[in-house]
Design a protein around this nucleic acid. Structure first.
Lengths: 217, 217
DNA sequence: TATCTGTGTATACACCGTACGGTAGCGAGA
DNA sequence: TCTCGCTACCGTACGGTGTATACACAGATA
């Protein structure tokens, strides 16, 4: 088993899944592979190129969702696949939107969604397409990022309200008790019960409807 | 001048503006202040708390835009202020959505936009508000992030098409020449002339219109 | 056999965040 | 006034990072 970019990327992904991006070091990957650290630089230029590699592996999974024929189904599938991938690999959301994703599979995903959107009603010229793609991708990136960070904090604090108030409490509950942030306080207290996927889907259709100029059903 | 959290945050911001987040180290800030590195830990718990500090300073500027009375004007002002802040402090976009922003000024911004959105037509209960806020923030985060990374790459490559093709070319142009990504290719070639702020504003109103269930004008 | 080439490895460097121990100054009590 | 204790400050040191570079060694060729 002579070591390859794929093998390196796979173990890097496994480590990043387990310990996050901060816990992912070249030395550690090498140790996991039973190799000296410098060995990796024969297959990869940088640490950042290694990250690009990992990202594109994830995009490969997302690209499989872009096979649908009808434009709206395809966009929905890609968006949900991106969300699923980010929930499986939380480090992916840290990289999302951070640098341009130009790997072959990332480009394939971009092509699939762009082609789909170009068939949407209300998207007339290439300028429309550019804008629509920007809006859609912006929403996906932001929504996924938000959801992942939210998951991280609730995991570190616990979903239990008492535990939550105990960890964030010394600061956040004091802040909210000042009465200066009534709406935020109401959201924090009452608004925890929404289903995440449902919210994502709801807002996604909102954005899509906005793009296609049709009122929400 | 006895050193303070504000002073530390200010020089940290200055350094981050100049050299990016990667070029921002505790040691460097300390050296800039003419102090030993450990000196900062008397004012700040972690490097990450220092980042939180910097972020909240930026939010203070954004919060000033949340003073308008009419809900839509307020949302627009906050969104544009966020974008402006991120363009002035590109590192801010790296942190955007990365961890929960709970500083007093960040909370003030959250309160301002939440209160504004709660007055929007089509936002009925607190669940509607939660969703609407999620959609809006997701868009802002994603859009700003995208724009900043785009600015970075065009700055590092140069906006000149020849220079662009020379730097990304060996890889990207080869990829695009394969014909597997026709729509992306069309976007890259034809779609560079759009005004960024206009696009942001356009998509922002698209999202807002989607939230308020009204068709785009 | 001697040399050359290329591949895998170990060492080394500059830097990072930060734990820790020490010290100097200063206000309070004897 | 002297001393004690405490706080605020500071330098050093440790374990880690990415990666440049020098080296060892195997296999191929002259």
């Amino acid at each position: 088993m002579p070591l390859s970019r794929e093998k390196i990327a796979a173990t890097a992904i496994r480590l990043a899944d387990a310990h996050g991006l901060d816990g992912l070091s070249v030395r550690r990957i090498a140790k996991e592979l039973g190799v000296g650290p410098m060995r990796l630089y024969d297959y990869v230029l940088n640490r950042s190129e290694l990250l690009d590699l990992m990202v594109d592996v994830v995009y490969a999974r997302i690209a499989e969702a872009g096979q649908r024929s009808e434009w709206r189904a395809r966009v929905l599938a890609v968006a949900h696949a991106t969300r699923d991938a980010a929930l499986d690999h939380e480090w992916f959301s840290d990289l999302l939107g951070g640098r341009p994703h130009l790997g072959p599979h990332a480009l394939a995903v971009g092509e699939a969604t762009a082609a789909a959107l170009s068939q949407a009603p209300g998207v007339r010229g290439i300028d429309d397409l550019q804008r629509a793609l920007g809006a859609l991708n912006a929403f996906i990136i932001g929504a996924v990022r938000r959801e992942v960070t939210e998951r991280r904090t609730t995991r570190s604090t616990g979903t239990d309200e008492a535990a939550f108030q105990a960890s964030l409490g010394p600061y956040l509950t004091r802040m909210l008790k000042t009465g200066r942030y009534p709406t935020v306080a109401r959201l924090v207290i009452d608004g925890a019960h929404l289903n995440a996927e449902e919210t994502f889907d709801h807002n996604l259709t909102t954005v899509l409807d906005g793009i296609t100029s049709r009122p929400r059903t």
